[in-house]
Simulated assay, not measured.
Amino acid sequence: MSDDRDQLAGPGLYLYGLVQLDEHVPEDLIGVQDEPVRGERLAQVTALVSHLDDGAVVGRPAEVRAHAAVVDTMAGRGPVLPIQFGTTTDDLDGIGSALPAERQQAYVDNLRRLADVVQLSLTARYVQDTVIAELVREDPEIRQLRELTRGRPEVVTHDARVRLGELVVAGFERKRAADADLLERAVVPLVEELRHREVTQVDVVLDAAVLVRRDAVARFEDALEDVAAGVVGRITLRLVGPQAPYDFVEEV
């Protein structure tokens, strides 16, 4: 079975993920290259697969989206273990060889562990103009440098602009520490587990994956609306899901 993340020649079947043995796959579920997705029962789990023409190439953005849509759709119905994008096999025997029965018990255990929860992705971002205005009010040096650089050529204010940028970034980071803690304390009581993702952009306050009980998703969304109301105009919240538990299990 091939698992290269780049473009791959498709020998026969494309694989999406593993679900519980008795999980029903919707008849209208469409996957990579507009092929219908079906379930193939193995010894202890069911593999989600679709047909792939011999010699077909997988790796385009549309196929990445199709793969994710299949896995996330099934995650909304029940637990699913995602298989790495681009994974193909020649035929059904190839699936059985790659996922022998003795390994499937671990997959069964993970599926049971995830049966009552679903992953959601929560991103909080600053409204940049609002936070910059705060920094200008709070920091005399930032205020002075903004006045110094406003309307003047970059060539003569280069050093001042560099210093201003450093101060603004440091200000965002300083505020992020307190605001992320505030948001996290509001969210943690509502979830089963939370995992942070690396923050790489200055305006991101919090980027996290959370596991929420399936029967509590609506209550979590309502509670998050209350949190959002408390930070409106300063921080925006974005919630995505249900998703496959990418952040809580390793891809098969």
Results as ranks from 00 to 15, higher is better:
V80C: 07
T73Q: 10
A180E: 06
T130D: 12
D72I: 03
G86C: 06
A170W: 06
Q84I: 08
V136A: 13
V232S: 12
L239A: 04
V205C: 02
L81Q: 05
D22E: 15
G39S: 07
D226I: 11
R60K: 12
D54P: 01
R234T: 09
A178N: 08
H24L: 08
V199K: 01
T73K: 04
R103G: 09
L183W: 02
R65H: 07
L29V: 06
F220V: 07
R146P: 05
V127H: 13
L29G: 06
G96H: 11
R219E: 15
V25W: 05
M1G: 13
Y16G: 02
L120E: 03
G31M: 04
Q105M: 09
L18D: 03
G86R: 04
G86A: 06
T157C: 11
R234Y: 09
V232N: 06
L15M: 10
V25K: 05
V188A: 13
L42I: 05
A98L: 10
P11S: 09
V227P: 00
D53N: 10
V210G: 01
D203R: 13
R214I: 10
L206E: 00
Q243L: 15
Q119Y: 00
R185G: 04
L48D: 00
R213I: 05
Q33H: 14
D28P: 05
P153Q: 09
A177P: 00
P61C: 13
S2H: 10
R214A: 06
F248T: 08
D28K: 10
A115N: 12
L167S: 03
T89A: 14
M74G: 02
R150A: 14
R125N: 13
L194C: 05
V188P: 00
V217M: 11
Q105R: 13
D53L: 08
R234M: 07
E198K: 12
V156Y: 02
R174N: 13
T200V: 15
L135Q: 08
P242A: 07
K175I: 13
E141L: 12
E23P: 02
D34F: 06
L18C: 09
D3L: 14
G12R: 02
L237F: 03
G230V: 04
G233N: 08
D4I: 12
T200W: 06
P36D: 13
E27T: 15
L15Q: 01
L206D: 00
S2M: 06
E221N: 12
V45K: 00
R150V: 01
V210C: 03
E147D: 14
A9F: 08
E173W: 08
P11E: 11
R60V: 11
A66H: 02
E154G: 04
R152K: 15
Q128E: 15
R113V: 07
R197L: 11
G230R: 14
V249I: 15
G94Q: 07
A75C: 08
V210S: 02
E63H: 14
A180F: 01
Q128W: 00
Y126E: 04
V57R: 09
A43C: 06
V231H: 07
M1E: 07
I30W: 03
A98V: 05
V49T: 14
